[in-house]
Nucleic acid binder design. Structure first.
Length: 399
RNA sequence: GGGGGAGUGCCCGAGUGGUUAAAGGGGACUGGCUGUAAACCAGUUGGCUCUGCCUACACAGGUUCGAAUCCUGUCUCCCCCA
């Protein structure tokens, strides 16, 4: 692969110990034992994380790697955050079962903005070098060809996700095939010592080494971290599956979503999101509450915590209406209930009728009967209309 | 350029002329239960002026008493050969 290898020697005990600490929650750190040797050099290492700003929001799943970077920062290393403004246009095929559309530059810029704002709630801004990969990837085609000259198609096709897609007769675009070259070249461009990513990034991370070798650079080591399951406890957390907790979610929502994480995933959540073990002895309810408090504190500040928890207690423990709810204007005088519910809660009238039949619509806490469907406005005015357990409106007289 | 295959409800996926708004699963929603919006159980899941009516199985036509199911054209996608 390369002549650029570091002279093998025994790392000192301190290096071994801190490598052990840093890899504690990692799934793999490759090559085996390499990180300890790097740490033993006694200089700050350059820790690379590349993120493609393909989605406008980031969620807790993204923060798993950020936490790890933070750990590196705290032990004195240099974090290099690469905003993949260029690679985002290509689309990372990792773990995907289908192609993703190319994004337009304006959306990418906006996404990058919000990403960074959120990322620095975890990372220490002072100790983070931010780079955009368009800086070096926007290259002449002859330069691009030189990148493409070395890797072989067979090597690129090895990866699991492509194998599966091809076996399933699904398309794989040429652009996707080339993606690892670009990500790998990022490592060349910034002289990465260590690159971090989710387990789904393993191929790309390892490929960075190939690219570094091709350009005569020292090879990075890689660390993969577990993928955080979403609030369903099974699938990878992602916006598209709707099982995510967004870092910009309002405090009440963030706390509430944490409370619905399956008990079985609690330990994992503690380790990956707080870098701590689940406190022993605490019941799942309390452990979830504590996790929720800490996360709300991290992303919204300590002052947001009591309100968020109280909101949860009110709605889901005591089953009371929230403190403040929005007003909804009653329309014409005989109020047609399906219409009212449909307009207020954004469902179809048929759906409103069904929910009504199932006893899911309440007025001041009392379930409404399936009949009648029409009410005089004055019977409803000032009362609280509730759809299911969690949606409320105060009914007011139309303007 | 040639050959083959596929397009079904939020998603996956049955269905190949007749009680079909379309099996099953997932998701979502509602109710019960509960320490939680966990788990578990039950129900609902095209629209509407709702004991009925309307619109639906890529799109547009056609055959038929009757089509998601047959025919023609269009579009989109996949695979293979060159």
């Amino acid at each position: 692969m390369s002549n650029v290898t570091e002279e093998p020697r025994e790392p000192g005990p301190d290096a071994v110990a801190s490598a052990a600490t840093l890899t504690r929650t990692a799934v793999e750190a490759l090559p085996e034992g390499r990180l300890a040797l790097q740490l033993d050099q006694g200089r700050p290492l350059r820790i690379k994380l590349g993120i493609d700003p393909t989605a406008p929001d980031i969620h807790l799943g993204h923060t798993v790697v950020l936490n790890k970077l933070r750990e590196f920062q705290e032990s004195g290393h240099q974090v290099v955050l690469i905003i993949g403004d260029y690679t985002a246009r290509v689309g990372d095929p990792s773990g995907r079962s289908d192609q993703r559309p190319m994004l337009d530059p304006a959306a990418i810029d906006a996404n990058a903005e919000t990403f960074m704002a959120q990322a620095f709630k975890v990372l220490d801004r002072e100790k983070t070098e931010v780079r955009y990969n368009s800086e070096w990837l926007k290259m002449e085609s002859d330069q691009l060809f030189s990148l493409m000259a070395r890797p072989t198609v067979a090597r690129l096709l090895e990866r699991d996700d492509f194998q599966k897609r091809m076996a399933a007769e699904e398309p794989v675009s040429l652009l996707e095939l080339v993606y690892p070259l670009l990500q790998g070249y990022d490592s060349v461009a910034i002289d990465a010592d260590v690159e971090i990513g989710g387990t789904d990034q393993k191929f790309n991370l390892l490929f960075g080494r190939d690219m570094q070798a091709a350009f005569g650079k020292p090879l990075q080591s890689i660390m993969t971290l577990p993928i955080l399951p979403g609030t369903d406890g099974v699938k990878k957390m992602s916006k598209s599956t709707g099982n995510y907790i967004g870092v910009t979610d309002p405090p009440e929502e963030m706390f509430g979503k944490v409370m619905r994480v399956p008990d079985a995933n609690l330990e994992q959540y503690w380790q990956l999101l707080l870098s701590e073990d689940l406190p022993s002895g605490a019941g799942p309810n309390e452990a979830k509450r504590e996790l929720g408090r800490r996360l709300v504190e991290r992303f919204h500040g300590p002052e947001a915590v009591p309100g968020a928890e109280e909101h949860f207690n009110r709605l889901f423990v005591r089953h009371e209406a929230p403190e403040d709810m929005e007003d909804f204007n009653l329309g014409e005088d005989p109020v047609h209930l399906p219409e009212l519910v449909a307009d207020a809660f954004g469902v179809s009238r048929s759906e409103a009728r069904r929910t009504l039949k199932q006893g899911g619509i309440r007025l001041d806490g009392e379930p409404l009967p399936p009949e009648p469907l029409d009410y005089p406005a004055k019977e409803l005015e000032g009362k609280v209309l509730q759809y299911g357990k969690r949606q409320f409106f105060r009914l007011v007289k139309g303007a």
